[in-house]
Amino acid sequence: MSLADLIPVQFRLLAAVGIALVLLLVGAGLVWWGLSPRIGLQSARAEHAEQALADSQQLVERQADVLAEQQKQIGQITALDQRMRALEQTITRNAQAQNRALEELKRHDQAVADYLATVVPAALGRLYERPETTDPAAYHSPDQLPADPVPTTGAAGPAHQ
């Protein structure tokens, strides 16, 4: 006698379906039990990948900020370099103008020195002749300044009333 003979005929199909259902649930439980660590591992990997992606995006944003700041500084340095070159050109032009002026002064000074080395014409000497410059007895010193040029305070004079 077998186990199937103990079950009435009308319930054999129901028993077979119940046993198949129990076996299916046990199989699904075994599959879940076997796969759940893998699912957890894949979930942890996905979370780690998302965190790594967020970190990478933050790093890219920081690098973009650094590059933007560097571009700004490069622009400022370029503008400063242009101003320095313009200033250098101005200094060069000024130095050249100053050298030309010095050369002209040297030529002029030489011409004046050559003229002064010659004898003063008599007519020119008499043109500027004054007794103060030619006669020592006619020379007098300038008037003395008062020791206290500021008047003392007091009543205002008629012009100030």
Rank of each mutant, 00 (worst) to 15 (best):
Q58L: 13
V60Y: 13
G40P: 00
L30C: 06
D81Y: 01
L35M: 08
L145N: 09
R130C: 09
V150Y: 13
A95P: 00
Q73I: 03
L21R: 04
Y128L: 15
R93K: 14
T153E: 10
A95N: 13
R12D: 07
I39A: 00
R45P: 00
Q110N: 14
L67F: 08
V60H: 12
A16L: 12
I77H: 06
V120Y: 02
S56I: 01
P136Y: 04
E61W: 01
L30A: 11
A113S: 15
V26T: 13
Q58E: 10
V31N: 02
L102T: 06
R45H: 11
I7M: 08
V17N: 02
Q63K: 04
D65Q: 12
S141N: 09
T90Q: 15
Q58N: 07
T78W: 09
D148S: 04
L21N: 06
A79H: 07
T92V: 07
R100S: 11
L87E: 14
Q58P: 00
N99H: 12
I7P: 04
M1L: 11
Q82V: 04
Q161A: 09
Q144G: 13
R130K: 10
Q89L: 13
L25P: 01
Q70L: 14
Q73N: 03
R100I: 12
Q110C: 03
L35D: 00
A86C: 01
A86Y: 05
I19A: 15
L24Q: 07
V17G: 04
P142K: 11
Q73A: 14
A52Y: 01
A122G: 02
D143Q: 09
L53H: 08
V17H: 08
D114A: 15
Y139E: 02
R62F: 05
R85A: 15
L116Q: 12
L53A: 15
D65L: 12
E104K: 13
L53R: 14
E69L: 13
A52E: 15
E129K: 06
W33G: 06
L14D: 07
Q71N: 13
Q73H: 06
Q82K: 14
D143M: 10
A64V: 01
A97T: 12
R100M: 06
G34P: 00
A46S: 02
L80R: 13
V150A: 08
F11D: 13
L21Y: 05
L67A: 15
V60M: 12
D109Y: 10
Q10M: 07
V119T: 09
K106C: 01
L102E: 11
L24V: 07
G40D: 00
A15E: 05
S2M: 02
H140T: 15
D135C: 03
W33Q: 10
L116F: 10
R85N: 11
R130T: 15
Q89C: 02
I19Q: 02
R12G: 04
E50W: 05
V22L: 15
R62I: 04
A122M: 05
D135L: 06
G18L: 14
Q70H: 05
A97V: 02
R83G: 04
V26G: 05
A68T: 10
L59T: 08
T78P: 00
G157K: 10
H108G: 03
D65Y: 07
